[in-house]
Structure formats: C-alpha cells, structure tokens
Amino acid sequence: MTVVLRQGQRRYREYADPNIGFGWLRLIGATTVVVDHSWPILDPSRLTIFPASWDASPGYVALMAFFAMSGYQISQSWASDPSWWRFSAKRVLRIFPPVLVVVAALVFVIGPLFTTLSAGEYWSDKQTWRYFVGTSLLFLLQHELPGVFVDNPYPWSVNGSLWTLPMEVIGYVLVLAVGLLLLLGLGRWFVFPVLAALLVADSRIQATMGYHGDVGSLIEVPLGSTVAFMVPFAMGMVVFAFRDRIPLNPWVALGLLGLWIAVHQTPLDRYVLAVMATYGAIVWAHHWPRRLEMDGRWIFGSYGMYIWGFPVQQLIIIAGVDDPWVLAALAVPAAYLCGVASWVFVEVPTQRLRRHLKKPLRGGPPAAAAPPGRAEPEVRRAGTPPAGPPRSRS
C-alpha cells in the first residue's frame, strides 16, 4: 500500500492534469499546421514543408493525432454525462461559436476590405451569402469569397483550414451513436467492430494527405478523407473505453514512432501512423510535465489559432511577404494571438452557458462543473493537410 501511495504522489508531483497535456499538444499541433501551410500557400505545387519525395506532412500527422485526442476526450465527455441532448448542446456550444465569428469577420470585414470587386458587386454576389450561410453551417462549406485573395498564389480558398470541421462533427455523432447503443446494454467491446469497419473502408478507399479517394462526398464533406480521419478518432474511443486495461507507456509511444518511420512509404504506413498518432498523443497528454501547467488562456487557444491561421497567412501575403520562412515566423504569433482572443472572448463565454444544461438530481447534488480553463478544450480540430482541401485526382 505504501508503494502505491508513493507512486501516486510521484505522479501527482511530476505530471500535469491531462487536460493541460491535451491543451499543449493541440497548441503545438496548431502551430505545426500554420508552419506547414506556409509552403503550399505560397507555392501550390507543394503539399507540405517536406520534399515531395518524403511523402509525408507534419500537418497531416498532427491531424491524425488531433482526431485521436478528440475521440478520447469526447468519449470522456459522454461518459461523464450520458445525456444525448446535453451532449449535443455541449458540442454545438464548443464548435460553432468560434466558426461563426471567423466567418462573419471574413464576410463583413476582410472581404469588403480586400475584394477586387466594387462594394455593390461584392454585396450583390450570391456567393458572398452562400459563403456566409454555408460555411457557418459547416456541411455546406464554401471556400471562395468574390474577389477576395484572388491575386494571392493560393486563390482557391479564403480559409482552407475549415474543411476538417464537418468531419469533427461526424466524430461527435459517432460517439453519440455508440454511447446510446452502450446504454441499451451492449458491452464496451462494441467499439472494436466500429473500428474494424472503419479500417476495412479505409483500406479500400486509400485516401491520403493529398487525395480524397474516389467515393464522392456527403454534401460538401469528402467521404474518403472522413473515413481516414475517423480511424484514429475511433482508436481514441477504444483507448478511453479500455483505459483500465491499456497502459500508457512513453517508451511504447517512442517505439511506435520508430516503427512508423521504419515502415513509412510501405502499405503498412497508414495503419501504423494511425496507431502511433493515437497512442502517442494520449500517452504524452497523460505524461505532460507538471512544471508546464499554466493559466488555460495561454494554452487552450489552439482551436482559434487553427481556424484563424489560414486567413492570417493570406493577409500577410497581401502585405508582400513571399518567403515561406518569413511567412511562418509572422503567421505563428499572429495566429496564436487570434487563438488566445478566441478562447477568452468567444469560447469561454459560450462554454459558460453549459451551466444552464443542468443534470437532474438523482440521490445527490450534480457534479461541479469544470472551470473554463479546464473545460473540454477539444478542437477540433486543428491540423489539416497543407493549404486547404486536396484536389481530387479525378
């Protein structure tokens, strides 16, 4: 008993709250995405900062890790309060308000200032309002605003990072569906058939960082890429469901990283990458150094950093920057400040609305709500394949 107590005390002293670890990892990932975008947004013939022969993207690896973390954390949110309507309300309050703000800023501020059209042409163009409504709804996502950024090297999207957010919502629906089935009496082993089905579909579609696959789209959401990203998401669900049986060992995480490097550019790559990104992200979140704990406002802005990063880069390019290293050096701090502002002025206030989603009293008082700095800072989504949606080979 004494040994166990000492181990627990040592862990308490050495490691931060996992929410802090997840927050740091998401912030690092969002930074990686902004840096990785700095090359293709200036030279669309490139997909990433890495040479084409490497067939790899740090932004894509980060994306796999982000979906894995979401699978774990959203499952945790459901387990803490398995109510379909409160779960759905929390997800809406988490993902939509920051998107509405950035979309409104693009349409009503940045668009009029930087469009090549006259004011009358811009406001009377149906695409202006199609962008505002469709992108706000996510599943009718649009990429172009009339005349905006059309003289930049990457004119096809004013905010290419948003394309993964509908997939994040699909992940929420997956957690809800599985959670409801578990409430009906299915055991937690049910998550394995879900993961197996996604792996089979992913094996057939073979979507990659620059290719959606040839299976079409659900409205504006590419199905092939959705399946590819739901694999690590479901793996995160599995790790949470069996958290009492799956040890979180940093040495195993490092071994998986080495294995992925070894099998990269082989058919095993896509499977080992998903496992490595999932296990590694969850392990490091739980082993984050306690000395790096700090006020949540400085580390929980990754979602805002992600959704603001791309338009910030487009604006810096308009200012005359044409070197990717300079672009990255300027865009990272600017996007980070946007993320902090989004967290403080948009996300924390809207998450406080959760206090109105009261649990019914059942033999005792409801559990205390987490403070804003600790409240499920999942993002969604952060991390995309470089410079917006990859163009289909077909």
Results as ranks from 00 to 15, higher is better:
E14N: 11
F22K: 01
L25A: 04
R26T: 08
V33K: 04
H37V: 04
I41L: 14
L42G: 03
D43G: 04
D43I: 02
D43Y: 10
P44T: 08
I49M: 14
D55M: 09
S57A: 12
Y60T: 12
M64T: 03
A65H: 02
A65M: 14
F67V: 07
F67D: 06
M69D: 08
I74T: 14
A79Y: 08
P82C: 08
R86K: 11
R86V: 11
K90M: 07
L93S: 05
V99F: 01
V109H: 00
G111W: 00
T115Q: 03
S136V: 06
H143P: 00
H143T: 14
P146H: 09
N159C: 12
L165M: 13
V173S: 09
V173E: 04
L174S: 08
L176K: 03
L181S: 12
L183A: 11
L183T: 09
F190R: 09
P193I: 05
A196K: 06
A207D: 00
T208A: 15
G210D: 15
G210W: 04
D214A: 13
V221N: 05
V221R: 05
V227W: 07
V231D: 06
V239M: 12
A241D: 10
N249Q: 09
W251F: 13
W251G: 13
W251R: 15
L259R: 05
I261Y: 06
A262L: 15
Y279C: 11
A281R: 05
H286Q: 12
W288V: 00
P289L: 08
E293D: 13
M294T: 15
R297E: 02
M305Y: 06
G309K: 06
V312L: 09
V321K: 03
L330C: 08
A335V: 06
V340G: 05
V340W: 09
S342K: 04
L357S: 11
A370I: 01
A375S: 13
A375P: 00
P377V: 08
R380Q: 14
R381V: 15
G383T: 02
P386K: 01
